[in-house]
């Protein structure tokens, strides 16, 4: 490596093989001579190839316009699919021709010499640094902030308080959470309505080993807004008779092998969609928390920390399932205020 003498821009460098090309351009450090640089015929051939790429781009653009107009309105899924493929591919040709042509132009026809340039020193001289620091201090002196403490403190107070309205204005972004996470629409006497049909589920509707999603109100009920709907889903599962082992204090919460548990996972709130009939386990498809249904839906695997809340159920005189009480705990993911 040879020594470099820092030069003014545009000057030459003290390099053994530095080659000053054009005096207004950065000095060339290594001339690269390709076959096409020596042979004009090859250069012309390269030009024709590049022109071909640009022409392909133009053809792609025309094709795009044609395809757009040829499918005046989309009616079938097949047309949408065809339109997507044709428009995408013609756009790709249109852009790709331009891109490839430009890159080939640079690589094949523009000079390939390596130029060199000194890096300017980013840091200023110590003198300049000192002067800048002095300017800052002199200006600070002029403001008088250092001496006038009353000015400083009152300004600090005013500026500090100024942040308050900005924060305060955000207050109405949402209501305070209060008890909203603790409650659901389920209460004593709620019928277990089939989530699909809105009809009450009756004793005998479910086969042994099957399950269904139930709601306390119909989906189009005015009380059933999206927020309530997100907490309300319950899984009604029919187990083999005698399989259920009620947790202490929950005797009588099941009815003839039917048990009801919140469908909202206690991990981060996905609806639990998978029931493994043979092993009687509920599996959350999001993060695979697994709950053992006959044992009070305790967690047997996965990241969820709490068992699914159970809904106590019975059957009324019409043979319809009813809740004998609401949930005794919040449904869904844990949160700080929850005990």
């Amino acid at each position: 490596m040879s020594d470099h003498v820092p030069t003014e821009s545009g000057g030459s460098l003290d390099l053994p093989d530095a080659d000053v090309g054009s005096p207004v351009r950065p000095p060339i450090i290594e001339r690269v001579i390709r076959p096409q640089d020596a042979d004009p015929k090859r250069a012309d051939r390269a030009e024709r190839w590049i022109a071909l790429m640009f022409l392909a781009s133009a053809a792609g653009t025309v094709a795009f316009v044609v395809f757009y107009l040829a499918i005046p309105s989309l009616h079938t899924i097949g047309q949408v699919h065809a339109s997507n493929v044709l428009l995408g591919c013609s756009l790709a040709v249109s852009l790709g021709g331009l891109g490839a042509g430009m890159i080939a132009w640079v690589r094949w026809l523009m000079p390939a010499h390596e130029s060199v340039q000194e890096r300017h020193e980013l840091a200023a001289s110590d003198d300049d640094l000192e002067t800048a620091a002095q300017v800052i201090m002199a200006g600070l002196e002029e403001t008088g902030l250092a001496r006038r403490s009353l000015l400083k403190r009152s300004l600090g107070l005013a500026m500090g308080l100024f942040a308050l309205p900005a924060v305060l204005l955000l207050r109405d972004l949402g209501p305070l959470p209060r008890k909203s996470l603790d409650t659901t629409l389920w209460k004593k006497g709620s019928l277990l309505l089939n989530a699909e049909t809105g009809e009450p589920v009756k004793l005998g509707d479910l086969e042994i080993g099957s399950f269904t999603t139930v709601l306390p109100l119909k989906v189009d009920d005015p009380l059933m807004n999206e927020e309530e709907l997100s907490k309300a889903p319950v899984l009604l599962i029919r187990l083999e008779p005698g399989l259920n082992k009620p947790a202490p204090g929950r005797e009588g919460w099941d009815f003839e092998g039917h048990v009801a548990y919140s469908k909202i996972c206690t991990h981060v709130g996905c609806p639990i969609g998978l029931y493994q009939k043979q092993s009687h386990k509920l599996l959350c498809p999001c993060h695979q928390s697994t709950f053992d249904v006959p044992r009070a839906c305790k967690v047997v695997f996965g990241p969820a920390a709490r068992a699914l809340p159970q809904l106590p159920i019975s059957v009324n005189s019409n043979g319809e399932f009813v809740a004998t009480a609401g949930f005794d705990q919040p449904v869904g993911p844990s949160f700080f205020e929850r005990s």
Binding site: N84, G88, C89, G99, I103
Partner: peptide, 16 residues
């Protein structure tokens, strides 16, 4: 040219 090339590849993947 590289901008067009990037866009072209994106368009081709998106079409296919």
């Amino acid at each position: 040219g590289f901008f067009f090339a990037t866009f072209a590849v994106t368009a081709a993947i998106s079409g296919l």
